[in-house]
Amino acid sequence: MVRFRKRKVVPFRTPGELDAMEAAGVIVGAALVACRQEAKPGVTTADLDEIAETVIREAGAVPSFKGYHGFPGSICSSVNEVVVHGIPSSKVVLATGDLVSVDCGAILDGWHGDSAWSFGIGPLSKLDEELNEATRMSLEAGIAAMIAEATVNDVSKAIEAGTRAAEKRFGRSFGIVEGYGGHGIGREMHMDPFVANEDNPGRGKELLAIGSTLAIEPMLTLGGPDTSILEDDWTVVTDDGTRASHWEHTVAVTEDGPRILTPRP
């Protein structure tokens, strides 16, 4: 007798639980909007951290990053060649032309929201603008793939397709950062499965179901895919010194299509 192994399904939530996750996600979105509004030349990333924490706590939520494995901030603030996990600091002063990623999480009633947004301090160079738009396009492509019966690798494949479409549009290549990607999310911030940002048919075989939730987060560079972690054990930088962009949303599969649980007001 042949036995077939049952396919793993990405954990799924009830409609009420998705509403609870979106309540946390709305707070995250509000914190990101507040950070972007105040991110001007002369402002430090420590200032942005204080702004985000204030928004989160005044909404009755808790910053999910603060204290996570010892991380000291309420946001990750990653500037220019820093890809992700930049530690907020009074020594990092924003300047015109900087490309800044703010990654933020909040816990409300035990549910997590997680989202990241990259933007310029004033006008960006043409190359940086294209990089940032390419990363946004990759995120949108991944979100669109969040449908029932798709696999996690279908989402990864779509993210890469979004990057390739951006390369065709802008006539240049972008580096897809190796070793980093999205993740499951719910009662914990980081859960299985890992969501790669490029196609690999040998992984990501888990199925999406109505109510499945993932944090989708493409990270692209103007150069190569290789990165290193600095001595603080957090900050991830591009090896070639080129700039990076990082976009993220928490997304659910629903009968009516993908639902963004971290909307920005």
Rank of each mutant, 00 (worst) to 15 (best):
S156D: 04
D240E: 13
P193N: 02
V9Q: 02
A166E: 12
R264H: 14
D233F: 14
R169W: 00
G70L: 14
V33F: 11
K8I: 04
I185T: 15
K157H: 02
E198C: 06
G16D: 15
A196M: 09
L32M: 08
A52E: 13
E50Q: 14
G73V: 10
A106F: 02
G204H: 09
R169F: 01
G257R: 13
T250N: 01
V9G: 07
R259C: 12
R187P: 01
G175A: 06
G25M: 13
A215W: 00
R203P: 03
R3T: 13
E255N: 03
S212I: 07
T262Y: 07
I143L: 09
K168V: 14
L208T: 04
N197G: 15
F4Y: 15
G211W: 07
N197S: 14
A61K: 12
G29H: 11
T250H: 03
V177G: 03
F194Y: 13
F4W: 10
V55M: 06
D233Y: 14
A161P: 13
A46S: 11
L127C: 00
K91L: 06
E149F: 09
I121L: 08
A59I: 00
F119D: 04
L261E: 00
A24K: 12
G184N: 04
G122E: 02
A148V: 11
E160H: 03
A30V: 11
P72Y: 12
C35S: 11
C35G: 11
I185P: 08
G223S: 08
T227A: 11
K8Q: 14
N200W: 00
G70D: 08
K40D: 09
K8F: 05
V82T: 12
T96Q: 10
R57S: 12
L230E: 15
G113A: 11
V102F: 10
E255A: 15
D239M: 09
T254M: 10
R169E: 10
S74K: 08
P225I: 04
V102W: 08
G181W: 09
P123L: 05
L208G: 10
A144I: 00
C35K: 11
S245Q: 09
T44Y: 08
T54D: 15
V62Y: 12
